[in-house]
């Protein structure tokens, strides 16, 4: 279906434009302004051009944080997408179980992010946490996320998967429910196996919602801040210092506004670039000819 061409539609979009622009454009200008100046104090600044960009791009700790971030987001997507789809497939389609499942699954999503960190501190501490103490005393596996980088990573990953897989599951479930019954009936008549049904009916029909889920999970995991800040504080060492944590350290804690501004713009561009690439790629998968 072709859409109706009508430029008056801008009137309908205007409120959104104004409200988002107010919160987006002015702060973005401020950040750009910071990024090209060296600020000594109120009304004391000199123009430094791309100096801060050069400095940040050469910063070894930023590179480390960036690779850490890619590894983290990569793992998040690889674990959460299939797991979320699997949960959605297992959820009941009708009856009292539907509401129960939805309520339980949505619960982690409605917990404030700093509380998420708190829950996982309490749960994984080697002295008082069920998980930490269980690993140490019951299974005899030494586990301490405050001392060992690998354990810290495992804890942050567990927390992240626990926290956000429900979002993927909810979206995938919504996608599954939209598939008319006739598709399943046709697949049975055509003798399709459960796997073929998944591959040729369920997965293609879920493409739209899965694209949303994938992009949301990529963006939000790439921007993760509050949960690891509370849980590990970026440590031990810098082992869980993701981009946001490092950025806050520079911009807000050390108050280096110039490098901080440059850093956030670089950061922003990276998220934008990858989201765009993923979006294009996911669209193409749906439309590509496979004979």
């Amino acid at each position: 279906m072709e859409k109706w061409p009508n430029n008056r539609a801008w009137l309908l979009v205007l409120p959104v434009f104004v409200i988002v622009a107010f919160s987006a454009i002015i702060p973005l200008m401020t950040v750009i302004n910071y990024s090209v100046q060296d600020i000594f104090g109120p009304n004391q600044a000199i123009f430094v051009g791309f100096e801060w960009f050069r400095e940040m791009l050469a910063d070894k700790r930023l590179h480390d944080a960036l690779w850490r971030q890619f590894l983290f987001s990569g793992l998040v997507l690889v674990i959460e997408m299939p797991l979320g789809i699997l949960i959605a497939l297992a959820m009941p389609k009708k009856g009292w179980g539907v509401s129960l499942c939805l309520v339980t699954i949505a619960l982690p999503l409605l917990i404030p992010w700093n509380t998420i960190g708190t829950i996982w501190i309490i749960f994984t501490r080697p002295d008082i946490g069920l998980f930490g103490a269980g690993m140490n005393s019951l299974l005899g596996i030494p586990f301490d996320h405050t001392a060992r980088p690998l354990d810290a990573w495992i804890t942050v990953m567990l927390m992240e998967v626990w926290h956000w897989t429900p979002l993927v599951a909810l979206l995938a479930y919504a996608g599954l429910r939209a598939i008319p019954e006739a598709y399943y009936q046709a697949a049975r008549i055509d003798g399709a196996s459960a796997w073929s049904t998944f591959l040729y009916i369920q997965l293609p029909k879920m493409r739209g919602v899965l694209t949303i889920a994938f992009l949301l999970r990529f963006m939000d995991s790439f921007l993760i801040y509050a949960e690891p800040f509370v849980l590990t504080g970026g440590g031990p060492g810098n082992s869980t210092t993701f981009l946001s944590l490092y950025l806050v350290k520079i911009a807000l804690l050390q108050f280096d506004l110039g490098p901080g501004g440059a850093f956030s713009l670089i950061y922003f561009v990276i998220v934008l670039l990858f989201s765009f690439i993923f979006y294009q790629a996911l669209e193409r998968i749906g439309k590509g000819d496979k004979v």
């Binding site: 009936q185 046709a186 008549i189 055509d190 003798g191 399709a192 040729y200 293609p204 000819d289 496979k290």
Partner: peptide, 18 residues
């Protein structure tokens, strides 16, 4: 009711391949 991601040929071949 079609298998959207497949070509017409593969749609027709699907029941036989199964």
């Amino acid at each position: 009711v079609l298998y959207d991601t497949m070509s017409v040929y593969n749609n027709l071949a699907f029941p036989l391949r199964n």
